[in-house]
Write a protein that binds this DNA or RNA. Structure first.
Lengths: 109, 109
DNA sequence: AATCTATATCGTAATATTGCGATATACAAT
DNA sequence: ATTGTATATCGCAATATTACGATATAGATT
């Protein structure tokens, strides 16, 4: 075996896991941070910002896109990427919801 | 190759990636949700809550512990697990910070 | 001491991720 | 039409993750 038993878990659990997986690599964190910083569509210069070869960056962008965290629109012969803010916020809200009972102090540990 | 080029990225980027990786599996999401729900140390019954064998659950717990998201304290012959709220909040804050410029509407896409 | 219970670790198979050179695609510019 | 530029995909090697049976460990119970 080795494959994940995704079927047992709820839709929300799998969704959150997919988003977290998309952010589970520092290169993808760096991409998201950069897109958040410039807060606009960015064509082309993402590869220059990372210490990785172009095919590798392309693959990371694809993973972020598949997870729904970024969007890419074709602009001439380039592709413009930006955050999918709606999706990012959804993920953030679910994650924050995970910690809701934080106001109740843990009884031990 | 295939190994991550972790050295290039900042400490914060790697930390966030590690926390995200810890949450990148639905079983680990389920564990965190369960601990958040009961909001207490839980001895023993985590294995029963998941559709996975005991060694597998033990491994997932170890990963969450290594990432600092949960704590485990030995209690007799059992181990009690609970969320590391401080660490969870830290991760949440960094992640939320990632979206700070959300108030500025994207100019395209 | 022998046994039970709870959890961890080892070993291993199946699968997934990471990275990149080579190559393909697609539009732009000459 | 040829060439250049930007990005994607293919194919492969190295490594990591996932899962679990078997086994080890450690405290509790008898």
């Amino acid at each position: 075996m080795g494959a994940s038993k995704l079927d047992f878990f709820t839709k929300q659990q799998n969704e959150l896991a997919i988003a977290a997986k998309a952010l589970s690599h520092p290169a993808r964190i760096a991409i998201v941070q950069y897109l958040a910083k410039v807060n606009a569509c960015v064509c082309g210069d993402i590869v220059d910002k990372l210490p990785l070869a172009q095919p590798t960056v392309s693959q990371h962008l694809k993973e972020l896109k598949n997870a729904g965290l970024i969007k890419g629109t074709i602009e001439g012969n380039a592709v413009c990427y930006c955050l999918d803010l709606k999706s990012m916020k959804k993920f953030r809200d679910i994650f924050n919801g995970l910690l809701e009972p934080e106001n109740v102090k843990s009884s031990c540990c």
